[in-house]
Computed example of a mutant assay.
Amino acid sequence: MKRRIICLMLLMALPLTTIAQSENVSYDEIAPFSEGLAAVRIGNQWGFINENAQLVIDFRDDLVWNQNADTNKAGVLGIRYPQFKNGRCMIQKSKVNNIPFYGFIDTSGEIVIQPEYLNITEFDHKNAIGIYVREAFQGQNEINISVIDYIFTEVVVNTNGEIIWPIHEREHILTAKRRYETPELHSRLIGDDLLIYKTKDNKWETKKLDLSI
């Protein structure tokens, strides 16, 4: 009988111990909740906790954030801390010439949009705008080195990673590390299917998207 009482007391104590451990974790920074999750930082790594203070996405070093972010800027340079929007959170991965490319994870921490964008907004109106990079193999030169051209297109992409609207090709983007700067986005979504974009003479025009195509 005594053994049963002791076991019961231990079982009753377990949830309290778990909660206490969650509450006593020290973080360097805690971001506001978004879609039921809040980013928490230790050093240069971020994870996510739920509204019960439980860590639901483990700490990782590929989440996008910037201590000195300019939140007025669209795209990666304006992201102060990781957060989920439309169920997606931005990640980065260094690729060509150690330049960062950007993609997204879902709320389970799985990559659902591969890092294939030089700059991209967080999701809004169920879509994002990014500069997509496509490799075009041009053959080999005289010393048998593969020649690859990179084609840059500003696009509208949905939460499944599907490019649903090519806005326009982008020119004068350099991928040389010493001269590289994150290219500015020239378009913005202001509704589910309404786009505004900057013309070559720095004027703004509107475009109604046909998302049924």
Rank of each mutant, 00 (worst) to 15 (best):
Y132V: 07
N141D: 15
N97Y: 03
E162L: 15
P166N: 14
K85Y: 06
S212G: 13
E29R: 08
K93E: 15
C7W: 05
D61R: 12
L11T: 13
L118D: 02
L10H: 07
I91F: 01
L118H: 06
N68Q: 14
D58Y: 12
R41T: 14
S22G: 02
N141E: 08
A176W: 11
N119F: 01
A128P: 03
F84S: 01
S94D: 10
L37N: 01
D201N: 10
Y27I: 14
H186W: 10
I151R: 10
I19D: 15
K73E: 13
E162P: 06
Y180T: 03
I151Q: 06
I19L: 14
F33Q: 14
I164E: 06
A69L: 02
D70P: 00
A136S: 10
S22F: 00
L14N: 04
I196V: 06
P183Q: 10
L194P: 07
S187F: 00
G191S: 11
V157H: 04
V147Y: 05
M12E: 09
H168Y: 13
K85F: 09
V147F: 02
A136N: 12
G78W: 01
F48K: 01
P183I: 14
R41S: 10
N44T: 08
I42Y: 03
L11E: 14
Q138K: 12
A38K: 00
Q92A: 02
Q67L: 15
I151Y: 09
L77F: 02
T182K: 08
F137Q: 07
Q140Y: 13
I57F: 10
N66I: 14
I6P: 03
I105P: 04
H125N: 11
I105H: 06
V96P: 00
T17L: 05
Y117A: 03
L195K: 02
Q67M: 09
D28T: 12
R179G: 11
E51Y: 09
V156M: 03
E51T: 04
V40E: 10
K198Y: 09
T153M: 01
I143S: 11
N119Y: 08
E169V: 13
K95Q: 09
I163F: 06
C7R: 05
L16N: 01
V64T: 02
A53L: 11
Q45E: 15
I91W: 04
S26T: 12
L189E: 07
T121C: 05
R60G: 02
K2A: 10
V147I: 13
N98P: 05
I113N: 06
N72A: 07
S26I: 14
S108Q: 13
L8H: 08
M12C: 08
G191T: 08
L189S: 01
L11D: 04
R179H: 10
L11P: 03
N86Y: 00
R188V: 13
I213P: 09
Q138H: 12
I42A: 08
N24A: 11
T17W: 09
R188S: 05
G191H: 14
E23H: 06
S94N: 10
R60I: 15
I120R: 00
Q92C: 12
E205I: 07
A136V: 09
D70W: 07
E154N: 07
E35L: 08
K126S: 05
E169Q: 15
G87V: 05
N141W: 05
F48H: 00
E162F: 12
D62P: 02
F33G: 12
A128L: 10
N44D: 11
D106I: 06
Y180L: 10
L118A: 01
